[in-house]
Design a protein around this nucleic acid. Structure first.
Length: 111
DNA sequence: ATTCTGACGTGGG
DNA sequence: CCCCACGCCAGAA
């Protein structure tokens, strides 16, 4: 693992940690906020290593459509959805309802 | 070294 | 909104 990626990981976690309760954001938004240095795919890849970090709410990060594409990476098949629903977010068929309403943009909130 | 695969995004139709 | 092609970059085979 290269040094740059370590830094990239830290940045991703740093942004993810400040996502407010009951809000969500997208991989692309985070990647863009970080300068999109390695494209949005790397954000998802970075989340792979967030399992050891309880403070990183990976369930609040979805793709740009509000689809829970990464739910299979959680323990159960519906754990991610349950976590979101426990925060008051309605999820139907892996799709967040009123996604725009819950969307949290790092650019606007963090600046 | 080569090819495929993905927690993705954008742009054209 | 959907479908498709393309760009992206790190790992696995």
């Amino acid at each position: 693992m290269k040094e740059e990626n370590i830094n990239f990981f830290q940045k991703v976690y740093e942004v993810a940690k400040v996502i407010p309760y009951g809000r969500v954001t997208s991989y692309g938004a985070i990647a863009k906020y970080l300068g999109a240095a390695r494209s949005a795919r790397m954000v998802g890849w970075a989340m792979n290593g967030s399992h050891n970090m309880p403070e990183v709410p990976a369930h609040r990060v979805v793709n740009r459509k509000g689809l829970l594409t990464g739910k299979h990476h959680f323990d159960g098949t519906n754990l991610m959805q349950q976590l979101l629903e426990s925060e008051g977010i309605e999820v139907v068929d892996n799709q967040i309802m009123e996604f725009e309403k819950y969307f949290w943009d790092p650019f606007i909130e963090l600046k």
